[in-house]
Lab assay of single mutants.
Amino acid sequence: RRRVRAILPYTKVPDTDEISFLKGDMFIVHNELEDGWMWVTNLRTDEQGLIVEDLVEEVG
């Protein structure tokens, strides 16, 4: 499975499927959606939700 790491922190918009995260958080990518969004699991918090790919980098 594809893994990505947050390069910046992010605070979710209330009442959306987004998740908040810290710089350095690792995610497993489940689905890549339109307009650069990804459905992921945050490995630190075990939370699932949407993040935008501009805020993460690939992990080898």
Rank of each mutant, 00 (worst) to 15 (best):
V13K: 14
G60F: 14
N31H: 13
V40E: 00
G36S: 06
E57Y: 07
R5N: 04
V52Q: 15
W39K: 04
I19C: 03
W37I: 06
R44M: 07
E53S: 15
H30S: 06
V4L: 10
I28K: 06
G24P: 00
I7H: 06
I28C: 09
D35P: 07
R2Q: 06
I7F: 07
F27E: 00
M26D: 07
R5A: 06
Y10A: 03
D17F: 13
W37N: 06
V40N: 00
E34V: 13
N31T: 13
M38H: 03
G49M: 01
E53P: 10
H30T: 06
G49C: 02
E53R: 15
V59I: 12
K12T: 04
G60V: 14
L8I: 10
E32M: 13
Q48V: 12
R5S: 06
P9W: 07
F21Y: 08
T45E: 02
L22P: 02
V13Q: 15
T11A: 08
D35F: 12
V59C: 13
V13T: 15
K12P: 07
R1A: 12
I28G: 03
V40W: 00
H30A: 05
L43D: 04
T11L: 10
E32T: 13
A6V: 01
D15E: 11
D17W: 11
L43Y: 06
D46V: 10
H30R: 06
R1I: 15
R1N: 15
N42K: 07
W39T: 04
V59L: 12
L50A: 10
S20H: 03
E47N: 05
K23L: 10
K12H: 07
E57D: 06
N42S: 09
K23V: 12
V56Q: 02
D17Q: 14
F27A: 01
T16I: 02
E58N: 12
R2D: 04
E18P: 02
V59F: 11
D15M: 11
R44F: 05
W37M: 10
R1P: 14
F27P: 00
T45P: 02
E53A: 14
G49A: 01
E53D: 12
L22T: 08
D25M: 02
S20G: 05
W37P: 02
L50P: 04
P14C: 08
L55S: 08
E53V: 14
R44H: 05
V52S: 14
L50M: 13
I51Q: 01
L55T: 05
E57G: 05
D46L: 15
K23N: 06
D15V: 05
V4E: 00
E18F: 06
L22R: 10
F27I: 03
V29D: 00
N42I: 03
G36P: 05
E53C: 12
E53H: 14
T11M: 11
R3Y: 15
F27C: 02
L55D: 05
S20D: 08
V29L: 05
K12A: 14
N31I: 14
E18W: 04
D25F: 03
L55P: 01
D35Y: 12
P9D: 13
E57S: 07
L22E: 12
E47V: 06
D54M: 11
E32F: 08
F21E: 00
